[in-house]
Design a binder for these strands. Structure first.
Lengths: 221, 221
DNA sequence: ACCGTCGGTAACCGTTAGGTAACCGGCGCT
DNA sequence: AGCGCCGGTTACCTAACGGTTACCGACGGT
């Protein structure tokens, strides 16, 4: 997950960013409103954390500008301005959340995660090469053709997609699909084989890769 | 927008609900955790506002229960428990927001609106292919012909329509139609069969699709 | 009391999914 | 080279699942 942190107090920003990065949240940093807008123009973020009091352009203005250009990236205001009117103004600008300083980094983390996940939840789709998965619709396409998958193969595919492009170990798969059972290598072998047959059809680039002795990954060659 | 307010202090709840209703937010009210779960089993809400300290079942438990049954309705905790640990616990249970008492009703309203917006407004009409459902009038048409549905089939149809084109799992259906009963596959099978007979009449495109091992969806092929 | 409707149970059946076993081929190790 | 392990591939068998039909009891209106 990649977020943009716009905050003019460099020391506070650094502490916060350090903490978030320890929790596997990548952060870009902007020290004022204009810089934030520049970065927002170039990159796509999962969440934007905005201070309100910033040089050049204030946080409210940045948020309004973002919404004006039809960008619905979730915005969280992080500011010392704690009056009701400020909060309402923040939500009015199109923010999703509003957290007052001083704050606990853990709470910020929790809220950022919610905003980032909600976005993902709304989408609930995955695509790689010409493979498209509509998870909530439970549909799967390779190119133009729709593919039907049996239950367990679908489970495996979703699992792989969620970790893509990372490798998923056999133990992880077994744990996810057959919880609290001893690992049986054979059924797993067959399962992977069948999934591969189903989605890596001839004429398409193979996407299911087994790494010998380690596990399986869903990714480009 | 329809929300569920679960709060054991009746006076506070009433004030809040009055305010929200003035702002065009309809509210159902639950005075304890069990009542909240009952209402959540029957109805679909845009947002759930949960107190933590409630009789019978506390708010955290309700939220966990909701997530366990794969319901991703946004949850906002509204509670006097303002320690960091409580907040983190709340988010851990799967909440989207956490607001501490005492609170300003305007802020609650703003946050509820944010949570409710991600989801499309509750449709009272639904149409797909040549199938038209007037939910509030309780009428159903396939092409020009009006169809009468028995109560449970109607319930199922509305449930499927609300999730369309997404898949609805058997467990979800059972939970919605026969809350707090053990899942009986057979009655469900018959129910789906009868609904399909009623609306997927010969000459029309079939819209009720069962995905083996997963559930049912109302959608175009 | 009669009848029609509705929803649940049971039984049947064709299909499919997924597990087991057997075979094969390659790679790395000694 | 030879062996053994790992993973790919084929074949087969059974249990589970879903569609379908038939039947039955409950309920409500006439």
């Amino acid at each position: 997950m990649l977020i943009l942190m716009a905050e003019d107090q460099a020391d506070l920003a650094e502490l916060t960013i350090d903490y978030l990065q320890d929790e596997a949240i990548e952060c870009d940093y902007a020290c004022d409103g204009n810089m934030a807008m520049n970065l927002l123009s170039v990159n796509q973020y999962d969440v934007v954390v905005l201070d309100v009091n910033m040089p050049k352009t204030d946080g409210f203005a940045v948020c309004r500008w973002l919404r004006a250009k039809q960008d619905d990236t979730p915005v969280l205001f992080l500011t010392a301005r704690d009056t009701l009117d400020d909060k309402l103004l923040g939500f009015d600008c199109g923010a999703q959340d509003y957290l007052c300083k001083p704050f606990e980094p853990q709470e910020l983390l929790a809220r950022v995660k919610v905003l980032g996940n909600g976005r993902q939840a709304r989408a609930k789709r995955f695509s790689l090469d010409n493979l498209k998965i509509e998870i909530s619709e439970h549909r799967l396409y390779r190119g133009e053709k729709e593919i039907q998958l049996p239950p367990t193969q679908w489970q495996l595919l979703v699992l792989l997609a969620q970790h893509s492009p990372n490798l998923v170990s056999k133990a992880q798969i077994a744990e996810a699909l057959w919880p609290a059972q001893e690992v049986n290598d054979d059924r797993l072998k067959m399962l992977i084989f069948r999934l591969r047959n189903a989605i890596d059809t001839p004429g398409n680039r193979p996407l299911v890769h087994t790494i010998r002795g380690a596990g399986v990954a869903l990714r480009n060659p």
